[in-house]
C-alpha cells in the first residue's frame, strides 16, 4: 500500500538547485521525454538522484510503519477468514518495504542508513500511520480507503522514469489489488451489518477523514523543484490532482452505503470535475509529520526495539570479510 507520495515541499525548497553538465542534462531530458527508463548505472542529474532517494525511501518506510497499526489487530481479528487476510496483507506490506529499500539502494543509499534514519526520526513516512487503529472498523477504513489512496499514487508512479522503482511498483500494485478488495469487503461487511457495526464504521470514518485528506499533502504550488521533478517523471501528478482522482472514485463508494462523510463543505464541481473540501487543519498535519502525533513515538520505538532485538541474529550470521556491492537492478 502506502505510497507515501507526499514529500514536504518546504523541506524540498531548502535544497539548492544543483547545476549539472548542461550537455549531459540535455541528453538525459531528451531520453525521459522519449519515454525511456533510467537504470542505476546511467548518468543522472544529482538532484534527480537525491529527490528519488528521498521519495522511494519515504515510501519504503511507510510500508514498514504502515504494517504496525494493522498488525495490532491480527490477534483480535473478528473471524478466522479476516485474520488470514490481514496477516497476508501485513506480510505483503513488509515485503513491499523490502523491495522499495532495494530499489532505493540502487541509487547509492545503503539499507542500514535508511533504517537508521527512520529510527532516528530523520526520515519521514506517511503521516496517516501516526494515528491509532482504535477499533476493527479502523482496520476496515485503512484497508479500504488508505490503500485506495496509496494505489492512486503508486499506479501513477509506476509510469515514472526510474526503472528499479517502476518495476517494484508494478509488482506492488499487483498485490495491492487484493489489499483493496479485502479492505472493501471488511468495510462493506460493517456497513451492511447491525446498527452498532454501522455506528462503529461511521465513527472510524469520522476520525480518519482528515488524515485521508492529508494523505496526498497540501496543495502544491508549481515551485522550481516541482516543475523539474514533473519533467523528469519523478513526480507524476500534483497533490491536488491525485486527491481529486481519489475523491472522484471513492466518495461515491462511501455514499452508496449510506455513510456520512464528516465534511459538509465537500463537493464536486460538475463542470470542472474538481472537488472542494473544508479546511482539514493543515496545522495539525504539519504538527504530526514533525513528530507530535498520537503515535509517532510508539511507532519509532517499536522499530527501534525490533532493530535492537534482531541485532544478535544479524551479527551471528554476518560474514566479516564481505564487501558490499550496489545491486544491479
Amino acid at each position: 500500500m502506502y505510497g507515501g507520495g507526499y514529500v514536504d515541499e518546504k523541506e524540498r525548497a531548502k535544497d539548492p538547485i544543483i547545476k549539472d553538465d548542461p550537455e549531459k542534462l540535455a541528453i538525459f531530458e531528451a531520453r525521459i521525454a522519449a519515454g525511456e527508463k533510467v537504470e542505476p548505472s546511467d548518468w543522472m542529474p544529482a538532484d534527480y538522484r537525491k529527490q528519488l532517494i528521498r521519495m522511494i525511501e519515504q515510501h519504503a518506510h511507510s510500508e514498514i510503519i504502515g504494517a504496525l497499526p494493522e498488525g495490532t489487530w491480527i490477534t483480535r481479528a473478528p473471524s478466522f477468514k479476516r485474520k488470514m487476510a490481514i496477516m497476508a496483507k501485513v506480510q505483503d506490506e513488509i515485503g513491499h518495504g523490502q523491495m522499495l529499500y532495494s530499489a532505493c539502494e540502487t541509487l547509492g543509499k545503503s539499507r542500514e542508513e535508511m533504517l537508521n534514519d527512520l529510527i532516528s526520526g530523520k526520515s519521514k513516512y506517511s503521516n496517516v500511520f501516526n494515528y491509532p487503529a482504535k477499533t476493527w472498523a479502523d482496520v476496515a477504513v485503512i484497508g479500504f480507503l488508505i490503500d485506495a489512496a496509496a494505489i492512486v499514487n503508486q499506479v501513477l508512479n509506476s509510469k515514472g522514469s526510474y526503472g528499479p522503482y517502476c518495476r517494484a511498483l508494478e509488482r506492488i500494485c499487483y498485490e495491492e489489488a487484493f489489499h483493496l478488495k479485502q479492505g472493501h469487503d471488511a468495510f462493506v461487511a460493517l456497513a451492511v451489518g447491525s446498527p452498532s457495526q454501522r455506528a462503529m464504521l461511521q465513527d472510524a470514518l469520522n476520525r480518519w477523514w482528515k488524515p485521508i485528506i492529508h494523505f496526498f499533502g497540501p496543495s502544491d504550488k508549481m515551485s522550481v523543484h516541482t516543475e523539474r521533478l514533473m519533467r523528469w517523471k519523478v513526480k507524476m501528478a500534483s497533490n491536488d490532482d491525485m486527491r481529486n482522482q481519489f475523491l472522484s472514485t471513492y466518495v461515491p463508494k462511501i455514499r452508496e452505503l449510506g455513510l456520512t462523510i464528516p465534511d459538509p463543505d465537500l463537493k464536486k464541481d460538475e463542470v470542472t470535475g474538481e472537488w472542494t473540501f473544508g479546511d482539514p487543519d493543515w496545522d495539525e498535519f504539519f504538527r504530526v509529520i514533525n513528530g507530535d502525533g498520537p503515535c509517532n513515538k510508539e511507532r519509532l520505538a517499536v522499530r527501534w526495539w525490533a532493530a535492537e532485538h534482531g541485532k544478535w541474529v544479524r551479527r551471528a550470521l554476518l560474514n566479516p570479510n564481505e564487501k558490499y556491492v550496489v545491486p544491479l537492478a
Binding site: 495490532t72 520505538a301 527501534w304 551479527r315
Partner: peptide, 29 residues
C-alpha cells in the same frame, strides 16, 4: 492500545541508530 507493545516496556529515551554498516549483508539477484 496494543498489549503486545506494552509488554515490550518501551520508553522514549531509547533512540538512536542501532544498525551498523554492512549489518544487513550483501545482495543477491
Amino acid at each position: 492500545l496494543d498489549p503486545r507493545v506494552n509488554r515490550m516496556g518501551l520508553n522514549t529515551d531509547e533512540t538512536g541508530a542501532p544498525i551498523s554498516a554492512n549489518e544487513e549483508g550483501s545482495t543477491y539477484e
